[in-house]
């Protein structure tokens, strides 16, 4: 082969063509030298170009990430795991920020609620806010490659609920820890222990805060599916803050007004309606909605 000057390891290639396993140096060379790959193909009885492409592909293929492996343990297929993890609100930085905010909210709650300087436990107010942001930044439009991804056969409902489920799951864990800590540090019998469900006993996750959190997250998801993530977070979080502020203003007992049984029933109704609306709108499967500006 005339083109094979000394920089092309002809002898080694001939040996490989005759069945020797290539060493790492030769593998590296083959990776960057299509000429040698072609030469190898012409020398060997096997279709080595084809074989080499397979080897090269396996060398380049990425290993599953830690998150993907974790989800695999839960039985989530790799494609769905990789898809689910491609959202800003599941990035380690995002989760760390959420943790910091929860720690601060927990500290404030522990300090201020017993002194009655504050009527409403801050941590219970912060939890739905975090969820609003997390859900908004789990929406299709928060994915930088949303235009390409939306043109794949992936079911829009699966896509939506996988990502929303994952961020809410992560937030539930973080928030439950924060509320457990806050609840435990408060005096026994304090109402926060009741509303965070801790009075039912250690290990029981009676989640009075979960329904408002879910409702607010769904509002954020619906708005960001139509407009953009920041709008979703603003509307969901804003609605919650207004509700808290108004209740604190007009109610003599804001904690039971916001987290008591009648409120919880209202949240549950809202969650059902909102989940239905979200599912229905995403089943249509257009990421670019019909009558809004999307750029």
């Amino acid at each position: 082969m005339s083109a094979h000057t000394p920089s092309h390891p002809s002898a080694a290639l001939d040996a490989v063509a005759n069945g020797r396993v290539p060493d790492s140096e030769l593998v590296a060379h083959l990776e960057s030298c299509p000429e040698c790959v072609a030469y190898l193909g012409s020398q060997a009885k096997l279709d080595l170009v084809y074989a080499w492409r397979g080897i090269a592909a396996e060398l380049d293929a990425p290993l599953p990430s830690t998150g993907e492996r974790l989800l695999a343990l839960l039985g989530v297929p790799q494609w769905l795991a990789r898809f689910t993890l491609q959202i800003p609100s599941l990035r380690p930085t995002w989760l760390s920020c959420s943790t910091v905010i929860l720690v601060l909210a927990t500290l404030v709650t522990i300090r201020l609620v017993p002194t009655r300087a504050l009527d409403v436990p801050v941590v219970l107010v912060v939890v739905p806010l975090l969820a609003a942001f997390a859900a908004a930044f789990a929406s299709a439009r928060a994915d930088p490659a949303y235009e390409i991804v939306a043109a794949t056969p992936l079911s829009p409902i699966t896509a939506l609920f996988a990502r929303l489920g994952a961020v809410l799951g992560a937030n539930v864990v973080l928030c439950e820890v924060a509320i457990l800590i806050a609840g435990n540090r408060l005096t026994t019998g304090h109402r926060l222990r009741f509303y965070s469900g801790l009075s039912v006993g250690r290990g029981t996750l009676a989640l009075g805060w979960l329904l408002p959190m879910a409702a607010v997250a769904l509002v954020a998801a619906i708005v960001s599916a139509r407009w953009r993530p920041l709008a979703g977070a603003a509307v969901g979080g804003g609605a919650w803050l207004v509700l808290v502020a108004v209740t604190a203003w007009i109610s003599s007992d804001p904690v039971s007004s916001l987290w008591g049984a009648p409120a919880e029933i209202a949240y549950a109704g809202a969650v059902l309606v909102l989940a239905f609306l979200l599912g229905r709108s995403s089943a249509r499967g257009f990421v670019l909605s019909p009558n809004v500006d999307f750029d």
């Binding site: 790799q78 494609w79 990789r82 491609q86 991804v149 794949t152």
Partner: peptide
């Protein structure tokens, strides 16, 4: 590209 290939079944 592998990720998109996954989503393309």
């Amino acid at each position: 590209v592998d990720y998109l290939a996954m989503l393309k079944e």
